[in-house]
Amino acid sequence: MPRHAISAALALLSGLAFAMPLAAETAPQDVSFAEDGLIEAPLSETAGDPENGAAIYADKTSGNCVACHAISDRTDAEFQGTIGPALDGAGDRWSEAQLRGIVADAKRTFPDSMMPGFYKSSGYIRPGDAFTGEAGSEPLPPLLTAQQVEDVIAYLATLKE
């Protein structure tokens, strides 16, 4: 077997391994949404870490929730967005199952929402390969991992008024 074929095979294998969820996680395509868009079961076995979630919330390269939402005590984050609702008190207004559904795929809760689905891998129009502008092939890696979604939900659940 020529060397380039071997490396291609290896790349394919590692690609497969990457696409396969860890045993303890629910893959995006296997997530079960209730009728009104909520997700009862956690997506990962490990409980969400609110501190990690707070970091993902403001991290431009992962959650970047702050691009569209504001939380009044997040003075660490400059230029909070005004597209989505402010999230102060989100933990009072929403159950964890509702938060999980909204973060994973908000349009199942609010059909006209502008919010991207953070745990979704297919069903897109002209899906791209991240921010390259080139075509991507579905299933795409979700915007957040199952554990990151759980971390963000754990953080949002702490937002009480």
Partner: peptide, 12 residues
């Protein structure tokens, strides 16, 4: 336009 569609993580 190309930049905007690229920024949707789309195929532009």
């Amino acid at each position: 336009f190309r930049g905007c569609i690229r920024d949707t993580r789309g195929e532009t």
